[in-house]
């Protein structure tokens, strides 16, 4: 197999005395979708924070295309093409939705690479912003792209989060619970987006509680529990693993759990 695009080796993170991550390793190849599941407080978001440089790891190594990116500043990591969404959505509340995208399009990386679907050339940033929004499910001719971000609904905010990542023309996207808080139909419209990302060769890490949708898009799934990696494998393997059932669902039947998820 070719070299992994992202190689996380034995990262640990302790907050004071609390161990949030304990020697977690995983590898990702180009175009893969890795799902990360685990109970609340199992360190999923910490993985995202560590990989994207938002918090420093206590030990371990993170390699991106063979280059060591451990504990680099967040903006440098993002500049290399590793972007993330935030679990608590963080739009620029005082700006309209399309202007939210002008900010990332103003970044060095977007100007270098031309932004999402820009083909290496970045035109008028506001138009490009609206193009990306349309791509991701904002109705172009409606007033929604022009609404203030503070008045958008959760569904659109989640899309806006994803759009912010895409406008950087990323190589790796880390999605922190982009399905949570969405209705079934909203999720259904987001799933093809993830699949399209995969088709275009973008590597995706998805942290998710909605197992049904996650298992549909993920190539592999990693299970975390109390900061430790429990197992990793294809969705079917993970579902069959009794240790996972124990940790994630208690003693309940996993399929029953799936229905609730």
């Amino acid at each position: 197999m070719s070299n992994p695009i992202l190689d996380v080796q034995d990262i640990s993170k302790a907050f004071g005395g609390v161990v949030a991550l304990n020697r977690v390793s995983f590898r990702l190849h180009k175009g893969e979708v890795l799902g990360v599941i685990g109970p609340n407080g199992s360190g999923k978001t910490t993985v995202v924070n560590c990989v994207t440089g938002f918090i420093r790891v206590s030990s371990g190594k993170i390699l991106f295309r063979g280059r060591n990116i451990t504990n680099k500043p967040a903006h440098k990591i993002a500049d290399m093409g590793i972007t993330r969404t935030f679990q608590i959505m963080r739009p620029y509340y005082s700006l309209p939705a399309y202007k939210n995208l002008v900010v990332p399009l103003f970044s060095p990386r977007a100007r270098r690479t031309g932004g999402w679907g820009g083909g290496g050339k970045l035109g008028d940033r506001e138009t490009v912003g609206i193009d990306i929004l349309e791509d991701i499910g904002f109705e172009r001719d409606s007033y929604i792209p022009y609404k203030l971000a503070s008045t958008l609904s959760t569904g659109y905010l989640k899309r806006l989060e994803l759009a912010r990542c895409l406008s950087l023309n990323p190589e790796v996207v880390l999605c922190d619970e982009i399905f949570s808080g969405l209705s079934m139909s909203e999720i259904a419209s987001m799933v093809p987006l993830i699949e399209r990302l995969q088709d275009e060769g973008v590597t995706v890490i998805m942290i998710e509680h909605r197992l049904r949708e996650l298992f549909r898009v993920a190539d592999r799934v990693m299970v975390l529990n109390f900061g430790e990696k429990l197992t990793e494998g294809t969705p079917e393997e993970v579902m069959a693993n009794s240790a996972v059932q124990e940790a994630y669902f208690g003693s309940e039947d996993i399929l029953e759990g799936l229905d609730y998820a």
Partner: peptide, 20 residues
């Protein structure tokens, strides 16, 4: 616009690959 973005949400600006 960048200034306002930094005020509204510095983390997202960082996540966009911009040195705030």
């Amino acid at each position: 616009l960048m200034f306002r973005a930094v005020r509204d949400n510095d983390q997202a600006v960082r996540a966009s690959g911009i040195n705030i």
